Simulated assay, not measured.
Amino acid sequence: MILTDTHTHLYSDEFDNDRIDMIQRAIDVGVSRFFVPSIDSSYTQKMYDLEAKFPENIFLMMGLHPCYVKENYLEELVHVETELAKRKFYAIGEIGIDLFWDKSFLKQQQQVFKHQIQLAKKHKLAINIHCREAFDEVFEVLDSEKSTDLFGIFHCFTGDFGQAERAIDLNMKLGIGGVATFKNGKIDQFLNHIDLKHIVLETDSPYLAPVPHRGKRNESSYTKLVAEKLAQIYQLPLEEIARITTENSKVIFGI
């Protein structure tokens, strides 16, 4: 059984004391594919170092996270473009709009999101979308860029059924993680109405740990707990959930 964590911040400071052991725990329970999003330039070298230690398991994205769109965003975009020109990445991410913490850079977040979507098209890569309290704003940009060469993952999807259908119509898979196990998460109430071909698994570790670890540090081994929840929702064997969601990830990332 091969499980794929399509979104994990393995370089996070929260793993500094046990990073290698944490990754090995995941591999031991069948999570052998880790897709690592970029946040900003300060984490790039840590990403490369991790990839060098686990070249068969770790696959990198490149991008500027919306929460890190600040006064220096143009410099950060140059970094993204420079790295994309140097080597292979598997997606542009994580990119999008976040209005939870700060609305003062909304205009710049929209510009950066749109620009990075265009980079993804140029490099024929998927996008990995971050959306927090910004569904309308994210969909506005996606609609403006809608085309056959726009595809990717709506990371940490927490929207309603209508928003899920809209994302799928835009060639997005839904990234499903710990929220699916929360009593107030709500997405478990309609997921079984969405074909499994549109679903990928993720943790967003170290954030959003699934039940029974909610509120604690998340880690990639908990991908299996998310898969077990989907097995209940879809009334399918765990192995089938793993197989289909991993195949879906291969469609998106090309590996």
Rank of each mutant, 00 (worst) to 15 (best):
S144Q: 11
F59I: 00
L125K: 12
R33N: 08
G152K: 05
K114H: 12
M47C: 13
K70I: 11
H115M: 10
T44R: 15
Y90T: 06
G63L: 12
S144G: 09
L119E: 09
Y68K: 10
G96D: 02
Y90C: 06
Q118Y: 04
V78R: 03
I95D: 10
K124E: 04
D40W: 09
K124N: 14
I153E: 01
K107S: 15
V69I: 12
A134M: 10
E56H: 12
F135S: 14
K107M: 09
K70W: 06
F54Y: 13
F139T: 02
V36C: 09
K86W: 12
H65C: 07
F54T: 04
Y73C: 08
G152Q: 01
Q45V: 09
Y90S: 08
E137M: 04
V69F: 10
T148M: 04
N128C: 07
L60S: 07
E51Q: 15
L60M: 01
M47T: 06
M62K: 12
Y48P: 13
Y48A: 10
D49A: 07
I129A: 03
H65G: 03
V78Q: 08
P37R: 12
S38D: 08
A85S: 14
I39K: 13
R132K: 09
F135H: 12
I97W: 05
W101H: 05
D149A: 11
Q110F: 00
V138C: 13
T82N: 15
K124L: 04
V112I: 07
L142E: 02
R33T: 15
D136S: 15
L77R: 08
I97K: 06
P66W: 09
V138S: 02
Y90L: 07
M47H: 09
F105T: 08
G93P: 05
N57G: 00
